[in-house]
């Protein structure tokens, strides 16, 4: 034994790398890592600066063109219900874009939150290991489909189906009229777009809720089963309360993605800004407006060009608000286990 251990000792390297070389290597590594970390912060700050400064220029132009004070312009911006910064007379009320964004998001969450949560509970608590191994990668593939595909899916599949359903329901409830007397769902509508956005965020929500459920400690799960609870009782009354911070964070992230979604709504909801919360109508969302305007050649510095930033800043503030809210909500519920 003694011989064995001494022979192991002699195998240890006796020459360590030089101390100064080591210190310098550490320093270089630390500064490279620091640069990588700081660059993302810097880029974010630059983006915010550009958004703000271009928005200021937008308001300056509006004030100059319409001969109104800054306060009037801001009031008009936040309360006006007409958004037409490209045509005279100028409409600079942001509400139509916000209502479009909120309506599609609401429809999207209406689809994605219940479906995503149920699917996550199934995957995490009910699915046999084999089923989960197949379904999880499929969910991840769904999350990787380009969103423009979802847009055309809404336009070419969801909306026609919805049109048939809505017509059929009306014919069933009020029979005996000519087909054109019934309400027709327009080809561009926020319902179809919203459902499609919902399908797009569904895999994210499902996957994150599933992660949150899986993260619940085993003792809690077993404690519930040991009391004679069934799987569904355990899932609903122990696991979901235990995972609530992660679940709320999943919903908020889903909402943020829905707010920022561009191609689906641009393709399927139409590009006409309209102040309405009725999902059966078409309307432009904030993001759809931004792409539609920037599709044409925009002279740098024109009011059209500046209006993109004014709309963009609303989008930025909306997602920022949701992310901060999500942060505090998940903090608020964290101390449960």
């Amino acid at each position: 034994m003694a011989e064995g251990s001494s022979s192991i000792k002699t195998n240890l390297p006796l020459v360590l790398p030089s101390r100064t070389a080591r210190i310098w290597r550490e320093r270089i590594i630390a500064s490279v890592l620091f640069l990588a970390a700081i660059s993302s912060v810097l880029i974010t700050l630059v983006i915010i600066y550009i958004l703000f400064s271009e928005t200021v220029i937008f308001f300056e132009k509006v004030i100059e063109l319409d001969q109104m004070s800054l306060w009037q312009a801001l009031l008009e911006f936040f309360t006006g219900t007409d958004w037409s910064p490209l045509i005279e007379p100028l409409g600079i009320g942001i509400l139509p874009l916000l209502s479009g964004t909120l309506t599609t998001c609401f429809v999207a969450l209406f689809v994605a939150v219940p479906l995503g949560t149920i699917a996550a509970i199934y995957l995490s608590e009910f699915a046999p290991a084999k089923v989960r191994e197949v379904l999880k990668p499929i969910l991840e593939i769904l999350a990787g489909i380009p969103t423009v595909v979802y847009g055309y899916f809404a336009l070419l599949v969801i909306t026609p189906v919805l049109q048939k359903i809505i017509l059929g329901v009306q014919q069933f409830l009020f029979p005996g009229r000519e087909e054109w007397d019934y309400f027709q769902l327009p080809g561009f509508n926020m319902l179809g777009a919203g459902i499609s956005v919902g399908l797009m965020v569904l895999p994210y929500i499902c996957s994150l809720v599933e992660d949150a459920l899986q993260a619940v400690p085993l003792e809690l799960r077993e404690g519930s089963y040991a009391m004679g609870a069934t799987r569904i009782q355990t899932a609903l009354s122990v696991l979901i309360p235990a995972a609530v911070s992660g679940i709320v964070a999943a919903y908020i992230l889903g909402f943020s993605r829905a707010v920022g979604e561009t191609m689906i709504v641009a393709v399927a909801a139409g590009l006409q800004p309209k102040f309405t919360f009725n999902p059966l109508e078409g309307a432009a969302t904030t993001t759809a407006f931004i792409v539609s305007v920037s599709l044409g050649d925009l002279p740098h510095g024109s009011l059209e060009y500046q209006s993109i930033f004014a709309a963009g800043i609303m989008l930025f503030l909306a997602t920022l608000f949701m992310n901060v809210l999500g942060y505090f909500l998940s903090r608020r519920y964290r101390e449960v286990y």
């Binding site: 003792e219 009391m227 009354s237 449960v336």
Partner: peptide
């Protein structure tokens, strides 16, 4: 019934 090694009160 069962009592576990680590106390495991439910989040309730």
């Amino acid at each position: 019934g069962m009592v576990f090694q680590k106390p495991n009160p439910f989040p309730k």
